[in-house]
Design a protein around this nucleic acid. Structure first.
Length: 879
RNA sequence: GGGCUGUUAGCUCAGUUGGUAGAGCGCUACCCUUACAAGGUAGAUGUCACAAGUUCGAGUCUUGUACAGCCCACCA
């Protein structure tokens, strides 16, 4: 045996830097396109939003995925583990606006010499410099590229075994092509339509949003009781929270069974201030218990108004603009009839052009003025406004309530396919299983088709143009779709077939669809982006469907659902066989860890320095899939301690295995009962570990491996020291050496998916070839132990541990060091247990420093849980 | 209001098909022992949220309750 120089101390910074560099240079994690599908494990990696920095929540979930991937790689699988960057969409636009002090103005021409500069502070929207659409998009790309490099460095330093050759950005040309291809495929399958209809609209960002991006927020609103006249001269009270929409009132409704209002049905009501006649009708959605039981229908106050309006023949009275301000309206013209136009126009002029909130307060003032009621008897507003708790819909990234505004949008038909999509969800193996119910519940609750168009700039354009009629109006019902061979296409830059660019926006010419796709319309095809669907069929077949989709649970309703929907529509397939849903990182008070809330602790970059990548990996893989975990630096410390221990014990074992006087040894030398007992424990652990990993339960593997490993260090290594060190050349010595070798090699490989750096370091000590990595070594398998006869093994390990613990305890109690000699140990216990004990007596005598023939035995049944009663006598002196 | 999850030692969490409650951290005392003081040894600590049921036996199964977290719905 040759003795080699081993590093003296565990230095995580040096060691991790070395291996991160090595993995990069040797490209060990590269996907091999020549391997068959069944021997490949494909991951549909979540592309993180590129928005400045990654936080511990990312570290947590990506490490869990990496752990699963590393296991699969060690099982011999060819791994496809790509990385995407979600850099398209609103978050990037907002970030660029803030950092660079600019805003996109499509009317400004492109300036190729424009560079701009990053601002120190966030620039208020009104002070932002307007730049052209192309300049804005270029700036977005520049900004995201910078962040993506930063992200890649973090992932490499954390040890994610990503194949960096398989990188993509959701805004790049390939992703645009796939998104547009997906769109056109759905067009050809009649799953897409565009329509002008009231849709949820964010007035701040001035874009449509989809149901999945909407959240309810509790808000205190006020009921205002307003007197309405009736054509026969009587009157009634309605309660409304939205008096500013009075001018958009198209009807008044009450429940058909509500006796109070039976007498009014079929008659006309007259609105205050505007003197507009509207029908009084029965509607099922009116709740007699709420307010006064009779309410006004406006275009549009809420989703009920939209629904009811659609099935009525009543006109649409649009008073709210896309920017959230009241539109100019003239009473006496078009749909805005009035019995007193001049009074109506005078009233409306006071709210014209105001923002919603201001219009509301102005309207309330007007309604409380004397004579505001059409009946001419006092004010229309009765009593004081009554506060009420309401749940109001907001865009999840917005801070003003959503409005329903009629606009033209593209939709994907999902409403008609709920049952089929539920069935698709059921074909996926969800871990943990209960996450499927989040999917099911969402699908069952869908009440709108998927709106995929956004009125933004940094996104994938629709490959669509429209002809323009002689009046200059786009002909929306005959869209001109791009040819698949021309993708990706930007209809604002490129010309459709059969047209000249000069005829853009001209009567008789064409116009481009100015919208971009929702970011989910792109990320819902991440499996296809990676597989090059439609471009490289051979590759697609090898990578689709994927094996694993890792993701967080709050985006089951978006990312998981949309991905399942698209794969189903495109190819009738599930996108992946397994969905592994990670939990959240939470603070000790259980709130979600996030930077925006200001409760994130150290940055991942700092923690890598302070604790080590392996310590962070330990923390992340200690938690099961789906279970929230507390940000706890205490756990990082424990992880780091495990790495230190592994480093040191490996060094110690290696020293004995590779000493100059170490003899040859092999599996067949393992004959000592203690050694066999240790091997048996190890074999059972290996068995369970494989089973747990197959079910994505990496946390259980770590827990059990860690537990047996500490047992190995604290008890087994101590017990066999004498044989492996001083009696190398005896049968017992060889048996111990062979066992130590097996244990070390097995523990390293069991730990490799978790603490990947330190295991690689130690593994390199054991290998003669420089390039053999532990991460491509085979994961331990029970068959490795098949040559070793474990039949006669009993509970030697437990018994040895108990007696050694007893001896140690006696010394501790006497405040003596652990090497203090022991004169005598009287053991009382069952004969059968004593027989087992006698098999490990030699090791115990040496490890406990018990004098020769110091053990004596009394065969007798004893009380209590332990196997023996020990009567230990220490020597008087240590000489 | 509907759905899902959780409640085990001071803290963070394990607990496989029901069979005498487990680990780490923290705490106390001690120890330089052939790798490891960034270490080791030993010790104390629990009406398993509550109630009822099934069972010879329940942390584990059933039902109900309370509390916590998340998702969805409620928008006049």
């Amino acid at each position: 045996m040759t003795k080699r120089e081993l590093p003296k101390k565990y230095n995580h910074l040096e060691l991790e830097k070395k291996w991160a560099q090595n993995w990069k240079e040797t490209d060990v994690y590269a996907y091999n396109p020549d391997v068959a599908r069944e021997n490949t494990f494909v991951v549909d990696t979540p592309p993180p939003t590129v928005s400045g920095s990654l936080h511990m929540g990312h570290v947590f979930s990506y490490t869990q995925t990496d752990c699963i991937v590393r296991y699969q790689r060690m099982k011999g699988k060819n791994i496809f583990y790509p990385m995407g960057w979600d850099d398209n969409g609103l978050p990037t636009e907002r970030r660029v606006q803030n950092l660079w002090g600019v805003k996109c103005d499509p009317t400004v021409a492109y300036d190729s010499s424009w560079t701009g500069e990053r601002k120190e502070k966030v620039v208020k929207p009104r002070d932002q410099q307007p730049i052209g659409r192309k300049n804005f998009i270029e700036l977005c790309q520049k900004q995201t590229k910078e962040d993506e490099i930063k992200y890649e460095n973090l992932w490499r330093n954390l040890g994610l075994s990503i194949d960096w050759n398989q990188q993509y950005e959701t805004i790049n040309s390939h992703s645009q092509k796939m998104s547009q291809f997906s769109f056109l495929d759905l067009v050809s399958k009649n799953k897409v339509y565009s329509t002008e209809a009231p849709t949820m609209w964010d007035v701040t960002y001035q874009t449509a949003v989809a149901q999945a991006e909407v959240e309810d927020r509790a808000r205190t609103g006020h009921f205002y009781d307003i007197r309405f006249g009736v054509e026969d001269g009587s009157e009634f009270l309605i309660s409304t929270t939205r008096p500013e929409l009075l001018a958009a009132c198209i009807a008044v409704v009450a429940h058909p069974d509500d006796e109070r209002y039976q007498k009014f049905f079929g008659k006309k009501a007259i609105t205050p201030l505007f003197n507009v006649e509207v029908p009084i009708l029965a509607a099922e959605h009116a709740d007699p218990e709420k307010g006064t039981g009779i309410l006004m229908v406006c275009t549009f106050g809420d989703v009920h108004d939209v629904e009811w309006w659609k099935q009525s023949d009543l006109p649409l009275k649009q008073v709210l603009g896309l920017d959230g301000k009241m539109l100019p309206v003239t009473f006496g013209e078009g749909v805005f009839e009035s019995k007193n136009s001049s009074a109506a126009n005078a009233a409306y002029s006071k709210i014209d052009g105001l923002f919603i909130n201001k219009a509301k307060s102005t309207m309330v003032e007007m309604l409380s003025e004397d004579g505001s009621c059409v009946l001419g008897k006092g004010a229309a507003l009765v009593g004081e406004p009554r506060p009420t708790q309401q749940a109001v819909k907001y865009y999840e990234k917005g801070d003003r309530p959503l409005e329903f505004v009629p606009t033209r949008q593209w939709f994907i038909k999902i409403l008609d396919h709920r049952e089929e999509l539920l069935a698709q969800g059921a074909k996926v193996n969800w871990t943990p299983a209960h996450m499927k119910s989040k999917f099911d519940q969402w699908v069952k609750g869908i009440n709108q088709d998927w709106c995929i168009s956004r009125q933004r700039y940094f996104g994938v354009p629709f490959p669509v143009w429209y002809g323009v009629d002689e009046n200059g109006m786009p002909i929306y019902d005959k869209p001109l779709f791009a040819d698949i061979s021309d993708l990706p296409v930007d209809p604002m830059q490129e010309t459709p077939k059969g047209f000249e660019e000069a005829s853009r926006n001209q009567p008789g010419g064409f116009t481009g669809d100015p919208n971009v796709m929702d970011t989910w319309a792109t990320s819902s095809v991440t499996p296809q982006i990676s597989s090059h669907w439609g471009i490289d069929e051979a590759r697609h077949k090898k990578l689709f469907p994927a094996d694993l989709r890792p993701q967080a649970h709050e985006i089951i309703r978006t990312w998981a659902f949309y991905t399942i929907a698209k794969s189903y529509f495109h190819e009738g397939s599930v996108p992946w066989y397994n969905a592994g849903i990670s939990g959240w990182v939470v603070t000790p008070d259980r709130s979600k860890l996030s930077k925006s809330k200001g409760n994130s602790k150290g940055s991942p970059e700092d923690l890598l320095v302070d604790f080590s990548a392996d310590a962070l990996r330990y923390w992340a893989t200690k938690a099961k899939l789906g279970v929230d975990t507390i940000y706890d630096e205490g756990v990082f410390k424990v992880g780091k301690r495990l790495c230190t221990k592994l480093f040191n014990v490996s060094k110690f074992v290696m020293m004995q295995l590779e000493d100059e006087d170490t003899p040859e040894y092999s599996h067949s030398d393992i004959s000592n009962m203690l050694d066999l007992a240790m091997i048996k424990e190890l074999k059972e652990l290996v068995d369970r570990s494989n089973k747990n990993f197959e079910q994505f339960d990496f946390a259980a593997v770590l827990l059990e491996t860690e537990s047996l490993f500490w047992n190995f260090c604290d008890h087994y290594v101590e017990l066999v020291k004498n044989r492996s060190y001083k009696q190398k050349n005896t049968q017992g010595g060889k048996s111990a050496l062979a066992t130590l070798d097996i244990c070390l090699g097995t523990f390293l490989r069991l730990f490799a998916p978790f603490i990947s750096f330190v295991t690689e370091e130690v593994w390199s000590w054991r290998q003669d070839e420089k390039d053999s990595t532990i991460h491509k070594a085979s994961f331990p398998n029970a068959s490795e132990f098949k040559e070793i006869d474990l039949g006669p093994v009993s509970d030697e390990l437990v018994i040895a541990k108990e007696v050694l613990g007893g001896i140690r305890g006696e010394k501790t109690k006497a405040q003596k060091s652990l090497k203090w000699p022991v004169k005598a140990v009287k053991v009382k216990g069952e004969a059968q247990k004593i027989e087992v004990l006698k098999k490990v007596l030699e090791d115990l005598t040496a490890a406990g420093n018990v004098s020769e023939n110091g053990f004596s035995f009394v065969s007798e049944k004893i009380e209590g849980e332990s196997n023996f009663e020990l009567d230990i006598t220490l020597s008087e002196s240590d000489s």
